[in-house]
């Protein structure tokens, strides 16, 4: 029963997160979510915003490596 390796942990974590995510989206249909700005009240807006922001941050960060990344001993040279 005791599964201690990272792969199976990752798999079950992914499974639970996906279930929670689906539930959160479904919840959005059950009540009217009040927000400060009306366009944020669209179904699943925060979820969409979170997903896109995250991908954007990681991708832009990765691209910025071209300009910002130097060797580890850069300042010692």
């Amino acid at each position: 029963m005791k599964k201690n390796d990272l792969k199976s942990m990752g798999k079950s974590f992914t499974k639970y997160i996906l279930i929670i995510g689906a539930l959160l989206i479904l919840l959005d249909f059950t009540f009217h979510r009040h927000e400060y700005f009306s366009f944020a009240e669209i179904y699943g807006f925060p979820a969409f915003f979170g997903f896109v922001s995250f991908v954007f941050i990681v991708m832009l960060g990765k691209w910025l490596r071209k300009f910002l990344m130097r060797k580890e001993d850069y300042y010692d040279q």
Binding site: I17, G21, L24, R33, F45, P46, F54, V58
Partner: peptide, 14 residues
Amino acid sequence: ISQLQLLVFAIIAF
């Protein structure tokens, strides 16, 4: 709900 949606879907993005 708003905060959880943001966070959980950011984790899904990860």
